[in-house]
Each structure stands twice: as C-alpha cells, then as structure tokens.
C-alpha cells in the first residue's frame, strides 16, 4: 500500500487566509455600516453618519 502525502502549497494556504480575512472584514462592515435591523441601526447611528455609510 502506498501512502500519499498531500502537500499544501504555502501560497495556497496563505491565499485562503487572506480571502477569509477579507470576508470577515466585509461581514463586520455589513453589521456596523449597512444592516437595516433597527437595533443595529440605532446603536450604530452616530458612527454611521460620521463614517458616511449609505445606510438610509
């Protein structure tokens, strides 16, 4: 029986890490700047105006 070893290219894994970071960033910005839920909108109100998010 031969054992196959999967090698993960370093650049592949780092590209995945970068993509996850970008997605996580977009997710946070959706919550802090875009989401319409009243609770989020009211809590983030002053910050959204100050940072010029087009939220309403």
């Amino acid at each position: 029986m031969t054992t196959q070893t999967a090698t993960i290219d370093r650049s592949d894994s780092s590209a995945m890490g970068l993509a996850i970071a970008v997605l996580a960033g977009v997710f946070l910005l959706m919550a802090s700047g875009i989401a319409q839920a009243t609770v989020l909108h009211d809590a983030a109100h002053d910050q959204r105006h100050a940072m010029a998010f087009p939220c309403h």
Partner: peptide, 27 residues
C-alpha cells in the same frame, strides 16, 4: 450609552476595514 455605542461601532468598523487593508498589504 449612546456614546459608548459610537465607540464600540467605530472599533468594529475600523477592524472590518483593517482586516481587508492588512490582507491587501500582506498580498
């Protein structure tokens, strides 16, 4: 309470932008 939320959401916003900016910097 209102001003505390402004601080908290600034941290969230800048962390969100920071994740994207640093990913591009590292790229």
């Amino acid at each position: 309470a209102r001003h505390g939320m402004t601080v908290a959401f600034n941290m969230i916003t800048y962390t969100g932008y920071g994740l994207i900016l640093l990913a591009l910097m590292i790229f």
